[in-house]
Design a protein around this nucleic acid. Sequence first.
DNA 1: ATTAGTGCAAAGGATTTGCATAAAG
DNA 2: CTTTATGCAAATCCTTTGCACTAAT
Lengths: 134, 134
Amino acid sequence: MMHTTTIEEQLAKAGIQPTAQRIAICRFLFEGANHPTAEDVKQWMDRNFPKVSLATVYNTLNLLVSHGLLKELRFQHDDRVVFDVNTVPHHHFLDEDTGELIDLDEALVTVDARLAPEYEIHQVHTVLIGRRRG
Amino acid sequence: MMHTTTIEEQLAKAGIQPTAQRIAICRFLFEGANHPTAEDVKQWMDRNFPKVSLATVYNTLNLLVSHGLLKELRFQHDDRVVFDVNTVPHHHFLDEDTGELIDLDEALVTVDARLAPEYEIHQVHTVLIGRRRG
DNA sequence: ATTAGTGCAAAGGATTTGCATAAAG
DNA sequence: CTTTATGCAAATCCTTTGCACTAAT
């Protein structure tokens, strides 16, 4: 029988003290938030865990990033940072109508770059921009 | 014999009045500036065409973008906008040591995305992150 | 007790805006 | 003359920081 890791455990394992504020933020992040901005996190917190300051939101997000639990991303269409719980390398689809960002598993996108041999490639990130019909 | 298009002509053709400030900025941009930020443009102007305000630099850059002579790009490693004279679709290599950005012709990078048919793809942009040896 | 986390308000950097002046058509 | 561009300073947006306060170990 398999044991689901709690947020406290995930934080502890990453070396982050699991305070109430941090757990609340992680609850939002790890339970389905889709590429939220700091402001999105703040707004969710205001509704679900009031009295947390914006500074704590930023501190916590940066802490999670620096401990590898979160990635920060920037896209062309928005000058704000968005956070991605998906820390595994992957790509993104950006719906140009709605602004919605969708993670694309690395296996779904094949990138073949024919560069001169002095270019060592360490990471590849593709953004597909378009529209989802339907 | 082929006639090289002047900056004035390029601006006029795009419907932009070719003022002295705009021409100077375009001279910097179109003659080899590599993915400059607004601040880079301002600094070049301070040296080569003093007394131009930062507001005019931003106004001009935005004007060029809105008329299709320039693209604005944002990358993960820098929260500032960088401008790209290359308005044809292409990809980028980011040297993670130096921060240098290198344009990659679209033909050099093949992207194959296996998405569900409701995803209409209009643009593809790949960033390759790594290091250039040598 | 000592260290670490939080909240608030202020500061910071990048970019935009309002408005008066200057230049262009 | 009338419109458009410029310069300056102030304003705005996002994010970070300093510092006093609180809560953990």
